[in-house]
Design a protein around this nucleic acid. Structure first.
Lengths: 193, 193
DNA sequence: TCCATTTCTTGCCATTTGCTAAGTGCAAGC
DNA sequence: GCTTGCACTTAGCAAATGGCAAGAAATGGA
């Protein structure tokens, strides 16, 4: 029930003294979210940024034809929020939903903003988090440019096996940019090997 | 030769007084880069972040098979740098090269860092820039997930026609995630319509 | 100007992926 | 037990894309 986990996560993003890490961790509050509940619904401004302590979260949007497209899966120690909505204070196009029961640590925009200007280490911490998110997305973009759907599926299986256990196939398919039919075929081949 | 252009760009990212915008613009220096010259080579730490006043820039990396993959095209008013390398002070995997003669405004890491902690408006400006880059990448990821190569090409033609005029087909192809052969065929169909 | 190189197009065929529809298995609720 | 809905698989065919190779067109240097 202590914030030790959170403090460790903070220090893994940016090494700093325990005292400073505790000061930053103080700004976060805990929340439990039940399976299928939403952390954010499209149309509202994202006012909380979550760090996941336990559970699996999925973000998705509806495209022009009203089809649901998975934009992100998040699991332990990852950040879940719509950065664009959170920092620019604009309505979100994303839906963020718990795929399993979740425990998260979250900070509100107002608290973040206050700490951002008041605490130099928080500034660095915050900026680094955004940069890390950018790096993750950049890596994923590269995989879209270079790799086949099967390779992307293979990578996901090795990197985040727990996601596979909790997300239905159709969610994984849109995350990989293919149809559920194709993913089913890929998975069939994958089992053979 | 004045910094008026730059000041306008700063204010378009984050509305602020002329005085503040000038203060931020003061931190940037001008550079001319000749066609084919590099703003960054892989292996070195990115120590300058550029805003393009004139010209076209391409970023690319070599994948595992040594094939060159275009990660970004940048044109007027866009930002060119390897954010991961710039902010995390790690060696870059990217190469950033001028496709045409360019004029850019750039800020060094040290100057950025100093202003980031000293000037509240600069903090907001800097953070917003990263967020905007993130948003651009997110949008592009969506297009990879939902759209066909032809749709992506079509969007690029309308959004950045000047890139098409200066980048050879093979660069555009890897940017879109397809082969140059396929892009040639897509382009052929495109002309018909 | 001429040559060499690069860029782009095209054809042929293989592979991947999409689309539609049917069928199976499973779990929840009546 | 039965129905219903959902998740997943499978099949057949169509469309998109890739791989390779040849040749045309454009470019850049000497």
């Amino acid at each position: 029930m202590s914030k030790d986990n959170l403090i460790q996560i903070v220090q893994s993003v940016l090494p700093m003294s325990n005292a400073k890490a505790e000061q930053i961790a103080e700004k976060f509050k805990r929340r439990k979210t039940a399976r299928n509940e939403y952390l954010l619904k499209e149309g509202s401004v994202c006012s909380e940024s979550h760090i996941i302590e336990e559970g699996i979260i999925r973000s998705y949007i509806y495209d022009l034809e009203g089809i649901d497209v998975t934009t992100t899966f998040c699991s332990k120690q990852m950040f879940a929020s719509d950065l664009l909505s959170f920092f620019k204070r604009i309505p979100s196009k994303e839906n963020i939903q718990a795929l399993t029961d979740c425990q998260t640590w979250y900070i509100t925009y107002d608290d973040m903003q206050e700490s951002f200007h008041a605490i130099p280490e928080f500034r660095e911490f915050g900026r680094l988090n955004i940069i890390n998110q950018f790096g993750i997305l950049q890596q994923r973009m590269l995989s879209m440019l270079q790799q086949t759907a099967e390779q992307r599926y293979r990578d996901l299986v090795y990197a985040n096996p727990e996601i596979l256990q909790h997300a239905p196939l159709k969610y994984i398919a849109t995350y990989l940019g293919i149809t559920d039919t194709s993913l089913s075929r890929i998975r069939k081949e994958f089992v053979k090997k």
